[in-house]
C-alpha cells in the first residue's frame, strides 16, 4: 500500500492555558475522505492549520505527501488546497478574478486545471462577473472550493466547509467531494461539527477537547457501541423526558428528533421500562431496540464532565 498522504504523530498545541491538541496521532490514506468530527473548541482548526503549514505545533511531527510540515512548508503549499473556516477570498474581486488570482499565484492557469473544477464551477459560472462579497453563502462556498482546487492539489484540507449551510447545499457539497475523490483521486481531510456528515466519510476521528476519542470507519464505530440502546415515544413527550430520567434503570436519556434514546443499565430491561412509564400515565407507548448512530457513539465516548453541567 502507498504511504499515507497525511501522517500526524503525537502533535501538541497549546495557547497559553488552553491545550488545543493534547498529543494526537492519525493518518489519512491516499484517496480517502477522512473526517474530523467534533464540536467547536475540539482542536480541529488547529490541526488543519498545522497541516496547512500556517501554524507550528509545540510538539510531535506531521507530514503531508511525505513532506515535513516544519521543514518543507513551501513545497507542501504547492500540494495542498486549504479552505479555512472563515470565507477568505477577496470580497471586492469578482468570481473570475479570484479564480485567476489563485491560479496565477500557483503559476498555473484556469484552463490548465479546468477539468478539476468544471462540475463545481458550472454552478457559479453565470455569476463570474459578480464580486465575491455579493455571493450567497452556498455560492461563496463553491467558489472557495474552486480556488482551493485550481492548482491541482494532491490533498484538500477543508475546515468546516458546511457550517451554517442548509441541508440541501450540504448534500450537494458532499456530492462534489465524492466526485473529487472518485474521479480525480484527491485525498480529503475535512472537519465538521455535524455528526450526520460522519457517515459520508471513509474514516473519521471523533474529536473532543484536544483528543481523538476514536478513529475508525463510521460503520465500525457505530457497530462497536456497547450499550443497550432503545428508542422511546409516548403521547406526552415533554413529561416523558422527566419520567424516563426518574426510572432507576435508565443510564442516559437524550432527545433524538421525535423520540428519546435511552440506554438501559445492566440488570434492567425494556419491559420494566414500559411498566414504569405506563404507571406514570403514558399512552401510545413505543419502545424499540435500535442501532446506535454516530451521535449516540459520540455521546457515549465523550467526556461528559465538561458538558454535563447541571442546569
Amino acid at each position: 500500500m502507498d504511504q499515507p498522504i497525511v501522517i500526524v504523530n503525537d502533535v501538541r498545541k497549546r495557547y497559553r492555558r488552553v491545550e488545543a491538541l493534547r498529543g494526537v496521532s492519525m493518518q489519512v490514506d491516499e484517496g480517502e475522505i477522512f473526517g474530523l468530527i467534533g464540536p467547536d473548541g475540539a482542536g480541529k482548526t488547529s490541526l488543519l492549520r498545522i497541516l496547512a503549514t500556517l501554524l507550528l505545533a509545540d510538539g510531535g511531527t506531521a507530514t503531508v505527501d511525505g513532506l515535513d510540515v516544519r521543514r518543507d512548508y513551501r513545497r507542501i503549499r504547492q500540494r495542498i488546497g486549504y479552505m479555512p473556516g472563515r470565507f477568505s477570498l477577496y470580497q471586492d474581486l469578482t468570481v473570475q478574478e479570484n479564480l485567476e488570482f489563485f491560479a496565477t499565484t500557483f503559476n498555473t492557469t484556469i484552463e490548465h486545471n479546468r477539468h478539476l473544477i468544471d462540475d463545481i464551477y458550472q454552478h457559479i459560472e453565470r455569476f463570474k462577473r459578480r464580486r465575491a462579497g455579493k455571493l450567497s453563502g452556498g455560492m461563496k462556498q463553491k467558489l472557495a472550493l474552486c480556488c482551493a482546487l485550481i492548482h491541482a492539489p494532491r490533498v484538500l484540507l477543508l475546515d468546516e466547509p458546511t457550517t451554517g449551510v442548509d441541508p440541501v447545499s450540504r448534500k450537494e457539497f458532499w456530492e462534489m467531494l465524492f466526485k473529487l475523490r472518485d474521479r480525480h483521486g484527491i485525498s480529503i481531510l475535512v472537519s465538521t461539527p455535524y455528526m450526520d456528515e460522519a457517515m459520508k466519510c471513509d474514516r473519521i476521528a471523533l474529536t473532543q477537547d484536544g483528543r481523538f476519542l476514536t478513529i475508525n470507519t463510521p460503520q465500525a464505530i457505530t457497530s462497536s457501541y456497547a450499550k443497550s440502546l432503545w428508542s422511546v415515544r409516548s403521547d406526552r413527550m415533554h413529561a416523558l423526558l422527566d419520567d424516563l430520567r426518574q426510572w432507576p434503570g435508565a443510564d442516559t436519556v437524550f432527545s433524538f428528533g421525535e423520540t428519546y434514546h435511552v440506554t438501559i443499565k445492566n440488570g434492567h430491561d425494556s419491559e420494566q421500562l414500559r411498566s414504569h412509564i405506563a404507571h406514570r400515565g403514558h399512552n401510545d407507548i413505543h419502545i424499540e431496540r435500535i442501532d446506535a448512530s454516530i451521535e449516540d457513539a459520540f455521546m457515549a465516548l465523550g467526556d461528559n464532565n465538561t458538558a454535563n453541567v447541571t442546569l
Partner: peptide
Amino acid sequence: DEPTGGVDPITRRQFWEM
C-alpha cells in the same frame, strides 16, 4: 438565530431543554 451551531451533542440537547 442558529443558537446551537458547533455545539457538542449533549450541550445541544441541554440547550433545547432550556
